[in-house]
Amino acid sequence: MLVICPSCGKRISDRVAACPFCQVTIASDAAAPIPSAPPARIAPPGPPLPRPSFDLPPPPKKTSPLVYVAIGCGLVLALGAVAVGTSVYYLKRKAAEIQAQGTNPELRNTKAVEVLKADRLPDGYYPVAVVSIPGMDMVVLGDQPPRPDGRAAHIRERGYMYMRLFREPENMRALRAFVEGRTDDPSALRANRVDVATTAILRRGSLRLGGGNVLYCAQRGEMSASGGRQKGLQTVTLTDCPDHNMRMGIWFGPDPDPARPPAELNLTGTVADENELRGFLSHFKVCGPAS
């Protein structure tokens, strides 16, 4: 075993007579033995570790497709109820607005100027009816001032009907063909709910005005207006604008000589006179934006 040299403190064998380092003679009982390290303590075994489980958790319970169908139906019904409620509210508001115009000539005039995009209405013309809803504007002008109660008076001889639609419907092609002169069949007017009967075509043409191209067809005939059927002259117009909205107008007035044949009729100063038509339509921004 190893012992410690009492002279130099080195570790030496207990069997040597002298320290190999300092040469001091070592007595058998002089060197102190090196204390041995205490035996290592071994901790008692702990509780066994849990055995890992490789079982997968149960799959989540699937929601029935009927639940999603029910949710979707409920959402559609809710949106439908909102849409119906909004539509009813809007229609009620528009009905109230039109009713208010019925006895308020100033309100009718303001609305007509707004729809026609005019600074003011032409002299001698008064608003009879004005309707403006998304996708459609309509104005009727007459030649009589409002009655004492504020309501519009019946048209006697001269008036103007204007309509704007968001897009030109397919069934308007026949009307366009009639105005352009590709057909003389007047049934195109009635087919498009334009209540004008044609007796004779007087002239057709076009004019540039306000950024648009105005096509017109002037005729002798009969039409429905406020107060009943009226015979005279009518000029049907279609205005082509960059926004592709359909703008149709009918300017109507008296026939200067109903007994005279169409070829001999003097149209100067009438609604069939192109110069008069240009002057009348110049009051409006014919290609103005929708109301």
Rank of each mutant, 00 (worst) to 15 (best):
L56V: 09
T103K: 11
T103W: 05
L75W: 05
Y68T: 06
G85I: 03
I71A: 12
A96F: 04
Y90K: 12
N104S: 05
K94Q: 15
V69F: 04
Q101K: 00
V84N: 09
G85C: 05
G102H: 08
P65R: 05
A95M: 07
P60I: 00
E97A: 12
A83E: 11
Q99T: 12
Q99L: 12
P65G: 02
L79N: 02
A78Q: 07
L66Q: 03
G80F: 15
V69E: 00
Y89Q: 08
P65K: 02
A96K: 08
A83G: 10
V82H: 10
Y90S: 13
K92R: 14
L56D: 13
Y68M: 05
R93D: 14
A83V: 14
Q101R: 07
V88Y: 10
K61I: 12
T63S: 08
L56S: 11
E97H: 06
L56K: 09
C73G: 14
A81F: 11
L77K: 00
A96T: 10
A78V: 14
K94E: 11
P57W: 04
A81D: 06
A83M: 12
Q101M: 15
K62M: 03
V67E: 02
K94N: 05
Y89H: 10
V82P: 06
P58M: 09
A95P: 01
Y90A: 15
A95C: 01
V76S: 07
C73H: 09
T63F: 07
A78M: 14
Y68R: 04
V67H: 04
A100C: 02
A95S: 12
V82I: 15
Q101Y: 08
L66T: 01
T63L: 11
P57V: 01
I98G: 04
A83S: 12
L75A: 11
L91D: 04
P105W: 02
V82R: 13
L91V: 05
T63I: 11
T63A: 09
T103Y: 07
K92N: 13
L75C: 05
V69N: 00
K61A: 14
P59E: 00
S87Q: 14
G72A: 15
G102M: 08
E97C: 01
A78I: 14
K61R: 14
V84R: 13
P60H: 02
P65F: 02
T103G: 10
L75Q: 00
A78K: 06
P65Q: 02
P105C: 01
G72T: 15
P65M: 03
G102W: 07
P60G: 00
Y68D: 03
S87A: 15
T103D: 10
L66M: 03
R93I: 01
K94H: 06
V88K: 10
V69D: 00
E97N: 03
